[in-house]
């Protein structure tokens, strides 16, 4: 019985083990798999390996429309897409996904070169 009382007095004398969360945030670890942040769309070659390897079917790649789309609500953040990407253009971030009010998808569309030229001109 006195064993626990010793523990309790020890805990009384030390700082709390928890943080005042919204005021004081922990630095995320460097190697954390927080979320798939997106893709560097200029580098993407639309091979579609990421969408085939994704265990949750969260990624959709359209070669013709040159679009890359991820559903963050389906994503299980395993990081398989990041590993298999031949161009290493999928980005991972160590911060967790923030809560959201709508189930939006992240869509990236590559602008074709002629188009960007015509826009420039």
């Amino acid at each position: 019985m006195f064993d626990m009382i010793g523990n309790i007095f020890k805990n009384l004398g030390t700082k709390p083990a928890t943080r005042c969360y919204p005021l004081e945030k922990r630095e995320p670890f460097k190697a954390s798999r927080g979320r798939v942040k997106g893709v560097e769309i200029e580098k993407c070659i639309f091979c579609g390996i990421c969408s085939r390897k994704c265990p949750a079917d969260a990624i959709r790649v359209d070669r013709n429309a040159k679009s890359w789309e991820i559903d963050p609500f389906k994503c299980v953040i395993c990081g398989a897409c990041v590993e298999v990407c031949p161009k290493k253009c999928i980005l991972m971030d160590e911060t967790y996904t923030q809560p959201s009010t709508a189930k939006d998808k992240l869509t990236y569309i590559q602008e074709s070169k002629e188009e960007s030229q015509s826009q420039a001109g």
């Binding site: 670890f29 190697a31 954390s32 798999r33 953040i77 990081g79 590993e83």
Partner: peptide, 21 residues
């Protein structure tokens, strides 16, 4: 666990043929 594997619980470090990290 989070520092080494990237996640607290589902650490996903196994793969067929070895480990991922």
């Amino acid at each position: 666990m989070e520092e080494t594997a990237g996640s607290r619980v589902i650490i996903s470090t196994n793969q067929i043929g070895g480990t991922r990290r």
